[in-house]
Simulated assay, not measured.
Amino acid sequence: MSTVGSLVLGHVIEEVLDPFTPATPLRITYNNRLLLAGVELKPSAVANKPRVDVGGNDLRVFYTLVLVDPDAPSPSNPSLREYLHWMVIDIPGTTGASFGQELVVYERPEPRIGIHRMVFVLFQQLGKGTVFAPEVRHNFNCRSFAHQYNLDTVAATYFNCQREAGSGGRRFGPRTS
């Protein structure tokens, strides 16, 4: 299944992002293990920030990476949606997050209730120095953020995370209006 298909299946497209066409390769690895869309990772596996490689073919094109939790503090009551766990701006194309500027320090995901989707979104910026940090981490909104700074969504992926002793999978039923 394609990454976009996984984002649709996991309701990331709809709840966090509008439909988009992937335009830039995004490779994320935690502890030298490639992140595949929709995989489940425990908090111990994501304790340290991942290595993030951004594709593209031009060092003069800059990107912003965010990691959000649309299920905070719990999937049944996401009142802090979308909780911002990490933000790196000014990442030059063909490099990685380590070449950008970390505006919001990585905060390890530690869900206490239920299974949380942890969503990485890569935005293309208009230019270097055109994106700024929000005042708070809670109730971040990827759509509003993109609109505010004229950002284009060029890649996204997600993983599921639940407390260390948790078990079971995320279930999506039919949507009710």
Rank of each mutant, 00 (worst) to 15 (best):
Arg117Ser: 11
Asp71Met: 09
Glu164Leu: 05
Ile28Arg: 05
Gly55Thr: 12
Phe145Glu: 05
Glu15Cys: 11
Ile89Met: 10
Arg170Leu: 14
Leu26Cys: 07
Ala72Gln: 10
Pro19Leu: 03
Ala133Val: 05
Leu9Pro: 02
Asn141Asp: 11
Ser76Cys: 10
Ser98Ala: 15
Ala45Lys: 15
Cys142Glu: 01
Leu84Cys: 08
Leu67Lys: 11
Ser6Val: 02
Arg117Cys: 09
Arg27Trp: 10
Gln101Gly: 00
Phe172Trp: 15
Val52Leu: 13
Gly96Pro: 10
Val39Gln: 12
Glu40Ala: 08
Gly38Val: 04
Thr176Asp: 02
Leu80Ser: 09
Gly56Ser: 05
Ala37His: 05
Pro19His: 05
Asp152Glu: 14
Thr157Ala: 07
Glu82Val: 08
Ser6Cys: 13
Asp152Ile: 08
Ile91Trp: 06
Gly55Met: 12
Val119Gln: 12
Phe123Pro: 00
Val119Thr: 02
Val88Arg: 08
Ser144Leu: 12
Leu84Asn: 00
Glu135Gln: 14
Pro43Trp: 04
Ile91Asn: 08
Phe123Glu: 00
Leu65Val: 05
Gly166Ser: 01
Glu14Arg: 12
Val46Trp: 02
Ser167His: 07
Ala37Val: 07
Ile115Glu: 01
Glu110Cys: 03
Thr95Leu: 13
Ile28Asn: 03
Pro174Ala: 15
Arg163His: 12
Tyr83Arg: 10
Arg81Glu: 12
Pro25Leu: 10
Thr130Met: 15
Ser76Asp: 15
Arg33Tyr: 11
Val68Gly: 01
Val46Ser: 07
Ser6Thr: 10
His85Leu: 08
His85Ser: 07
Glu102His: 05
Val136Lys: 14
Ser167Thr: 11
Thr3Arg: 10
Asp53Trp: 06
Ile89Pro: 06
Leu65Trp: 03
Val39Asp: 09
Asp71Tyr: 03
Ser2Trp: 07
Pro19Asp: 05
Val119Arg: 02
Val12Leu: 05
His116Val: 06
Asn77Ile: 01
Leu35Val: 04
Arg27Asn: 13
Pro111Leu: 04
Val105Ala: 14
Ile28Met: 00
Phe145Ser: 05
Gly96Cys: 13
His85Ala: 02
His85Ile: 02
Leu26Arg: 11
Ala133Trp: 02
Met87Trp: 10
Ala156Ser: 15
Ala37Ile: 04
Leu122Cys: 12
Pro70Tyr: 04
Ser44Tyr: 10
Asn48Gln: 13
Lys128Phe: 09
Glu102Thr: 11
